[in-house]
Amino acid sequence: MTAGETRQAVSVGFTDACKQPMFHRVLNAQPLTVRDTLTDMRRRFAADVGEDTLGRLELVLAELMNNVAEHAPAAGRRNEARVPVIHLCVVRHKSGLACALTDDGVSLPDDCVLPRSLPPAIPEDLPEGGFGWFLIQDLTQALSYYRRESRNYLAFNIPFETEGKV
């Protein structure tokens, strides 16, 4: 934990939870909009969250939101992709950052949220993809997912400290 993270952590109780910094945004799932959102989020938490934690949060959110953009559902007769809308909410709490992310894109394949390993690194034919969900799972805690009607719901925590894991 950085000094800022510790100072905040000791002062947090139910009564002052409302003072915790948070970030909320509704955005179109498009790579440049995702980029702007991450820049704004970084600015919001810069004073209260350490650089290492912020870096891990930014990476996880980039992977998740760009996945939604990449797998935008095809719609209509001309097969134009419909741009999904993402709702993102990040709240700082005493041991990390609680994140909720919903979108109205296609549903996630089941294996995304099942434990997974890295794609095999065959020297003559290195994998160029398949890292995203590995990174998401590696950097998050308590990752949960469900789909209700036309929306995906994901919730997880980004811890301040990673117990030597990262």
Binding site: A62, E63, L126, G129
Partner: peptide
């Protein structure tokens, strides 16, 4: 900042170089 699609791009460039030509990455940020 770099995400997994950026990593994929770096790997693709690495693979386009013959094995005897090195690709060195210098001064990466955390």
């Amino acid at each position: 900042f770099m995400d997994s699609s950026g990593l994929g791009a770096m790997i693709a460039v690495r693979k386009s170089l013959p094995a005897n030509l090195k690709m060195v990455l210098c001064a990466m940020t955390p």
